[in-house]
Structures are given as C-alpha cells and as structure tokens.
C-alpha cells in the first residue's frame, strides 16, 4: 500500500517546495540510518552513506516513479550506495565493541537500559554472522519495509531465492536467540 503522505510530499517537492523534503525523509531517517549502520557496522561510514543517500534522493526525486513505493526507492538508493562503498573500500565489517556496556548497575532503570543495550548488542552480533545475501534481504525487509518481490527485483535474484535467504536468516536468528534463552 502506498503512503499517501509520501505522495503529497513528493508532489509538493516536485513543484518546488524544498521544505517538503525534510518532512519526507524525516519519516524514514532512523530506519534508513539503522539499516546503513547494520550493513556497514561503522558509525562514520553509516553517516557518510546516509548523507550520500540523501543527496542522491534529492537529485533524483524528479525521476522518481510514483508507481513504486517511496520507501522502497529510498532504500534501494541506500542499498546500492552502501554496496558500492563496501566494494570500493573492500572494508571488512568489524563487530561493534560491546565493552562499553556498563555492567553491575543496581538501579532498576539502568538495569533495564543495560538489558536493552545487551539485547541490541546480541542481535547485532547475530546479524553480523549472517551470510551477506541473507543479511541484505533481512535488513531490507525489516528496515526498509520492502516486499519480497521488490527485494528480488532490486537484488536481481529469483523470488524463491530471496524467500529462501529470509527463511535461513530468521532460522539462524531464532536458533541463536534460543541458545541465549531469549525465546
């Protein structure tokens, strides 16, 4: 289903109202940044890629086809930008250092915060262990909200292959969470 607010904002943007751009991106900024951060595992790189994605979106907005969902188009730009960057730098993804998680807080709020941080860290590690294609499909689905047919088209892979990547990714995550007694 297409987002009506997106359609209105894009129309305003195309007619020259640049303030609509901020409103349009604002809806996706955290999901987009989260996606890039999970994919490249480095805050500085994620910020650079975020900026590059935003600039490409701004420059290409007039070419955007309303037949496609804006979120899918935005995330496909982000994905291609990130993959290009990773290929160029041949950067090996590093695990985020989890040593900064404070341990032994007695305060209930801090304890809760710690648990959330720890769970985020566990999930990051699980995602990091996934094979590249499984990770890409999983992140595009969860952060970009893309449909599998859209992902298949974007990655130029058969639909069944994409579904299989997602299936294996979720199975691995489930297994890992079970081993840690999370579920």
């Amino acid at each position: 289903m297409k987002n009506n607010l997106d359609i209105i904002l894009i129309e305003r943007l195309k007619s020259g109202d640049s303030t609509a751009f901020n409103l349009l991106i604002n809806n996706y900024k955290n999901k987009l940044y989260g996606y890039l951060l999970r994919l490249c595992k480095d805050v500085d790189t994620a910020e650079d890629l975020f900026q590059e994605t935003i600039i490409k979106t701004w420059k290409g907005i007039k070419k955007y086809n309303e037949k496609n969902r804006f979120s899918s188009w935005l995330f496909s730009i982000a994905h291609n930008t990130a993959i290009d960057s990773i290929r160029k730098s041949k950067q090996k993804v590093e695990l985020i250092d989890t040593n900064d998680i404070e341990k032994g807080d007695e305060n209930a709020n801090l304890q809760q915060e710690y648990e959330i941080k720890e769970m985020s860290s566990i999930i990051e590690k699980i995602i990091e262990k996934l094979p590249e294609k499984q990770k890409q499909v999983f992140l595009l689905r969860q952060h970009g909200g893309m449909k599998f047919k859209e992902i298949a088209k974007m990655l130029d892979e058969p639909l069944n292959t994409v579904l299989s990547h997602m299936n294996y990714a979720v199975k691995k995550i489930k297994k890992d969470l079970r081993e840690r007694n999370v579920i």
Binding site: N30, G34, E47, I123, K174, I183
Partner: peptide
C-alpha cells in the same frame, strides 16, 4: 516473535 524482538532492539536514532 523473532521479527518483533529484532525490530524492538534495532531502533537507532540518528
């Protein structure tokens, strides 16, 4: 359940 856990703990604020 797995997807919900992921979504809950993967939120990042720029």
């Amino acid at each position: 359940q797995v997807l919900e856990i992921y979504d809950k703990h993967s939120e990042v604020e720029i």
